[in-house]
Design a protein around this nucleic acid. Structure first.
Lengths: 250, 250
DNA sequence: TTTGCCTCAATGGTCCTACCAAACTAAACA
DNA sequence: TGTTTAGTTTGGTAGGACCATTGAGGCAAA
């Protein structure tokens, strides 16, 4: 599976950490490439001159970090893989959840990211991408009058739209941040689509935004983004306040 | 340490995952609060009706996630703690590193964040905070003509400045993102301070930016932020290109 | 009483051995 | 030739044993 002289026996204390660090270093320095497999637990046990439990804990750590995946059976073992955005978002979500993030602060952050993304998308995306975005928003309209709404599908579409927009910046970092944010707390966005009236407005707002972007109307697109977050804030307020309160005009 | 009926025995397959999930759920639902301790490994082993190895692997997973810390000896065990930003940044750094992020794309993202932060800081921070920022930048000047530069100290100052600015937005999300970004790849920024000429310009740029912010000169502050990234790009180009190439005028 | 030392028990860290379950391989067989 | 079956590899689990660390409580000396 892999070279034998890559690792050295463990010295003192926290052997598990040591093993994990050595293997992680081997992966990060690309001495072991994604797709390749580590030696079996029993082989590693021999190479590191340690107990199998130590190896298993190290493997566990690396798996948690997203650096490897584990397969059972013959030809099984730990296989190096590329770290996925999902790992970052899980970590982020955990942090946000345990630290009781104010949704208003989160919304403000997302709004700022959205505005930046919109600016970059308008100035960099080609006409094909912009048309594709408009097309995608048109699909949303199918959910306008659908009484028995498939929320799953709707949320999925919304997510794809956000990511499509992020991709149009030509900068993958924005796409990743967007994916992390989405995975982290899509729950908040759900609220927007739960209520019929908010759903209608949100969908129409998406269509409007896409059209402005396609027409290179930056300022109007930004304005439309702003309207989206006005909707979001109203929705959050409404869910928190007296639930029978009516929707105020935008 | 903790209630006895919190957990239930494990059923099938991946017992370790199951245990980890149950404990994680108990932590996230705040049935166990930060500072409190989990039962000892041997107690958990009894409660979950499983082997000690399984418990240890679960504990390892939670430790990696940053949900608990582990102490040895009497009164030792797993203690619940708040997830720290460092966990998010480590995860982020791992992702960025293994996916070979283009520094130009990263810089663009950081620049956009910096601009947003600056806008919010100018409009929300009180005069005290703004003065404090100016004061802090003045400290940088001590490093202007210092021949034997303490890079550690300088980098630390730079980091604190960025975080101070992020705090001035009044939105903790920006502070956390900034911390994550800093921890993730401060290495790139180091380059700016390595070269004497770049260091001089960067320090003066910081002072300028702080003054503009203190004077509520938003546009000029943003312009100054832009200049910072022009410097950064030049520096990166220079390091990548022929190393003897001179610094072009800004 | 106070201080310093010592012992002891609790607990995580490591090692080992055994067995089970899954999954791929190859031989045996129809 | 195609299918079934037995074997082998490998991770998953169980349980026991011992070590190192650490905190607490007791004991003795000042």
């Amino acid at each position: 599976m892999s070279d034998s002289s890559l690792f050295s026996p463990v010295q003192v204390g926290r052997a598990g950490e040591d093993v994990a660090l050595q293997i992680e270093a081997a992966i990060l320095s690309e001495r072991i490439l994604p797709g390749e497999g580590l030696p079996s637990e029993r082989d590693l046990q021999a190479q590191f001159k340690t107990g199998r439990g130590v190896i298993r804990e190290a493997i566990r750590t690396l798996k948690q970090k997203g650096l490897i995946e584990i397969r059972k059976g013959a030809k099984g073992g730990a296989y190096v893989k590329k770290v996925e955005v999902a790992n970052v978002s899980e970590s982020l979500a955990l942090f946000l959840k345990q630290n009781h993030i104010d949704t208003a602060h989160l919304a403000e952050f997302r709004e700022s990211i959205d505005r930046t993304i919109t600016m970059l998308a308008v100035s960099r995306a080609d006409d094909g991408q912009k048309q594709a975005l408009v097309m995608a928003t048109e699909q949303l309209k199918n959910f306008l009058d659908d009484s028995e709404t498939d929320m799953e599908k709707l949320a999925e579409l919304d997510r794809e739209l956000n990511i499509m927009l992020a991709q149009m910046t030509g900068n993958p970092v924005f796409e990743w941040i967007m994916r992390a944010l989405q995975l982290g707390f899509s729950s908040h966005d759900f609220a927007l689509y739960e209520d019929v009236e908010f759903r209608r407005r949100t969908i129409l707002n998406w269509c409007q935004t896409a059209r402005f972007i396609a027409d290179n109307e930056l300022l109007q697109a930004l304005s439309s983004i702003g309207a989206h977050y006005v909707l979001l804030r109203q929705c959050v307020d409404r869910c928190r306040g007296t639930s029978t309160q009516g929707i105020q005009a935008v």
